[in-house]
Design a protein around this nucleic acid. Structure first.
Lengths: 130, 130
DNA sequence: CCTCATTTGCGAACTATTCGCAAAAATCCC
DNA sequence: GGGATTTTTGCGAATAGTTCGCAAATGAGG
């Protein structure tokens, strides 16, 4: 009669494995296509539900792309960092940066703006695409 | 017989005036509601079309919010700057910042990442909301 | 294996956005 | 100003991404 949560299911494992091997932001539809290519048939609903779960757990980062379609990527929540996103292949590289933190703090002092967070993304071409 | 473009119409003036008086990102629906409150009846289609036009002209900045809904704000395209967004009232303040530019350049040198752009947003509480 | 809570798949529902087309409005020229 | 011409508008339908309800399938514990 107690609550038994967090079942380990195949759809969840498959979806996690897709995310684990792609260092870029993927839409729910792209993940669904990846599953089909692997021969794993999972409904789009389940993809969405699993992504919501992973986001609630803090395992993935969600980001609406320029058109407003939401995309997701595995992302360690423990270490604070920013992203460098390749305009050509979409690969995301982490940018761990203390200097940025300092800058944000100085802004608080200067503008009287009570800073409690920031979002930073760099765009360009990664090594492989140049 | 030549091309006559850029008509000045009431819907366009009304929409521009809504944007001009709100220092925050507004969705198409919010703009539409604002128009109705002013007694200006304009179709949602026209709101979307006008926003597309303004964006193409470079007069406004579009930004998908956390849920993927696209929001718009008047934004001088000439001066490069970043935003400080109040989590409480949504007010957007410009952050003009040369130091940020320098930082981005140094990143290029360090990571071999061919940088061609970046997006930076600071979140927190503005003076009025504290 | 047997039971029971959780999860899945399906299709329908919803929301934001776009599109086609006929009617209305703006511009130009006289 | 009046008329011809082009652009713009409004409407409703279409589309795309996402969510939801519910019956059937699956995972966990005994």
């Amino acid at each position: 009669m107690g609550i038994r949560a967090d079942y380990v299911t195949r759809p969840r494992e498959w979806i996690a494995s897709i995310l684990a091997r792609e260092p870029r932001f993927l839409s729910a539809a792209q993940i669904h296509q990846g599953l089909e290519r692997d021969g794993a048939r999972v409904s789009l609903s389940t993809v969405y539900r699993t992504l919501d779960r992973l986001q609630a757990k803090g395992d993935i980062t969600a980001r609406p792309d320029a058109d407003g379609e939401v995309t997701y990527m595995l992302c360690e929540p423990t270490r604070h960092h920013h992203h460098a996103i390749c305009r050509s292949c979409g690969r995301v590289e982490d940018v761990d940066c203390a200097a940025m933190e300092q800058f944000a703090e100085s802004l608080r002092a200067r503008n009287g703006f009570e800073l409690d967070g920031h979002a930073i993304e760099f765009f360009g071409k990664c090594g492989a695409c140049r």
